[in-house]
């Protein structure tokens, strides 16, 4: 039997008014320990869905429950102790890291915002969890975007809730830091059976990290599933493919698609073969089984010329990938 969900939505319709419905008939569950990625093109209502699930915006119809309780029955404070939300935030006032993180404990503070020793320990723990345990006195406006995002995440974690709802937490931060962030979130969720829902445009990160992916499509329909199933069933392709890009079914990655370019045949195997294909696609060539232009790729860099280029009967040895593209562009331009 599945554990009971931390958050569940039934027959949810979201949007600004019945005439401006963004999505309908959403039925979703967030299970303990899970991290869910919410994907979709711009404007399909990812942010609206997160705000609705957070109880900050009323659904047009349907119900949302936190555990066994429907959110309409919960006070603003009770909600603040069950779920924490991270919106794209621009800080205007100069603030120290610890003060900023301490704002996450406001639901537990007295009328003046005074917090207890226990709250201070929670702040210590969440700073440690995101790997900035000794940043207490740093000024937030002097941090890089990635560091700022970590501190904001610490503030969100400090709220001590069962679930986190994060709106595009990976925007503006570099690739290693995204991985790091995903790792922190995964650890946070697994440790105590908590759950995370985050919206992002980062398909690669979602494929590598998500326990489940929820996809909102324009027109208001939605799909959910584990990353691999969505890739195999072609759902990812349907949502994200465009004339310029296609989803590679083998890897679930978005790749450029070129149509109408000249064809080349590539023979060989191993990593050098794969990278050669990538370079050729990037340069505007189409890979074809039987082209008059044939490129052979050696399996290693040993030997002077790992590549050879044959056009008709003429064959030429080539030393580097860059040279290959240059020569090809001269004799067989894309």
């Amino acid at each position: 039997m599945l554990p009971s969900p931390l958050l569940s939505a039934r027959n949810l319709a979201i949007g600004f008014s019945p005439k401006q419905t963004l999505a309908r008939d959403l039925s979703l569950d967030l299970l303990p320990g899970e991290i869910i990625f919410l994907l979709g093109r711009n404007g399909v209502g990812k942010s609206t869905l997160l705000r609705t699930l957070a109880g900050l915006r009323a659904p047009l119809s349907g119900t949302i429950s936190y555990g066994s309780q429907e959110i309409e029955s919960l006070s603003a404070k009770a909600k603040a102790k069950y779920r924490a939300v991270l919106f794209p935030t621009q800080l205007k006032s100069p603030t120290r890291v610890r003060e900023l993180v301490s704002l996450g404990r406001l639901p537990y503070a007295d009328w003046s915002g005074q917090i207890s020793r226990h709250d201070q320990e929670e702040i210590d723990r969440s700073l440690l969890a995101v790997g900035c345990g000794d940043w207490n006195d740093r000024w937030v406006d002097q941090l890089s975007d990635g560091e700022k995002q970590r501190v904001l995440l610490a503030k969100t974690i400090a709220q001590g809730t069962s679930i986190l709802l994060l709106d595009e937490p990976t925007a503006f931060i570099d690739l290693p830091q995204r991985m790091e962030l995903a790792k922190v979130l995964k650890r946070w969720a697994r440790q105590a059976g908590r759950g995370v829902i985050l919206s992002t445009h980062d398909l690669d990160l979602a494929m590598a990290t998500a326990d489940q992916i929820w996809i909102l499509e324009s027109g208001g329909s939605w799909t959910s599933g584990i990353p691999e199933e969505l890739a195999m069933s072609g759902t990812l392709g349907r949502v994200f493919e465009s004339p310029e890009a296609t989803i590679d079914r083998a890897t679930g990655r978005l790749i450029w698609c070129q149509t109408g370019g000249p064809t080349v045949t590539v023979i060989g195997h191993g990593p050098w073969h794969d990278w050669t294909i990538r370079a050729l696609i990037r340069a505007g060539y189409q890979i074809h089984d039987r082209s008059e232009v044939v490129i052979r790729v050696g399996s290693s860099l040993e030997g002077a010329s790992p590549w050879s280029l044959s056009i008709g009967l003429q064959t030429e040895d080539i030393r580097s990938l860059a040279e290959l593209l240059r020569v090809l562009n001269q004799k067989h331009p894309a």
């Binding site: 957070a54 900050l56 006070s75 603003a76 939300v85 919106f87 621009q90 900023l100 704002l103």
Partner: peptide
Amino acid sequence: FLLVKGMDALLLGEESAESLGIA
């Protein structure tokens, strides 16, 4: 003075303040 806690929360913006349980 009675609203100092709400003012702290407003440093994060209106929406975040609301999500922290502030009216």
